[in-house]
Design a protein around this nucleic acid. Sequence first.
DNA 1: AACCAGGGTGATG
DNA 2: CATCACCATGGT
Length: 275
Amino acid sequence: MLIDPEFTPQGTRLPGAAAWFALPETLDCGQAFRWRPREDGSWEGVAVGRYLRLERQGPDIFLHGAGEAGFPFWRRYFDLDRDYEALAALFRRNPPLRRALDFCPGIRVLRQQPWETLCTFILSANNNIPRIKGIVERLCQGWGEAIPGTDLRAFPDPRDLAPLGEEDLAPLRAGWRAAYLLDAARRVTQGSLDLEALDLLPAPQAETRLLEVKGVGKKVAQCVLLFAYGRVECIPMDVWMKRVMAELYPRGFPRYLRPCGGIAQQTLFHWYRQR
DNA sequence: AACCAGGGTGATG
DNA sequence: CATCACCATGGT
């Protein structure tokens, strides 16, 4: 099902989107760390300095805070041009994935800002999701630009972090990861890591560049490629996915799943962790 | 109290 | 190439 957005004064309406866009699960399944639920059940967050609130109304999903002009950004962010229903039909040929989809269909892989994704997954190393969220929040509150009309802040720019020392980041309580964060900020600021140029490289070469950053290993690099650059063939192998593979895919993913293996991975990750 | 969390690094075989 | 102690922090 391809989207046909309807721009109304109340917001941008995505008709029937609830069927292929699991809102809370997509926003809170460990790929992004800054979306939060509101009292009324809607969700709000910031990406690249843009505020957005999303809410489900029956079969539809509404985007508030992004007019027609801002919609192309969120269209890309939420990967709205990919047909996740067709993908689910393919995934359902595989029994473990069918189980995961029955548990929660409609988990989408986002296309987040590369810099933010690099940082948040550096912070994810040997860490747990609630604490990652807390560190990221303190990072934004400390050095991110305020978003007018909200209590939220943008994710800080690399230029704002690069001059800092580890002592400055102590309030984050990020532990030994703080030094890695600063290394990333300095590389990006100095230009020795060009995050925009990675768009043009094949995934393996882009991965090699990411691995130069301290604190970035195979798993974090795969997360950045998947969650920021839309390289859906990349499959981050964390402790949970290693359990999934050992238990359910001892010979690896079947070949027909591999081109979108990263999306399959996120569906399995969520199911296995929440079961 | 020991173990775990969306791991990575550096030293050692 | 494989293994392993270690890393800071907070929750169970």
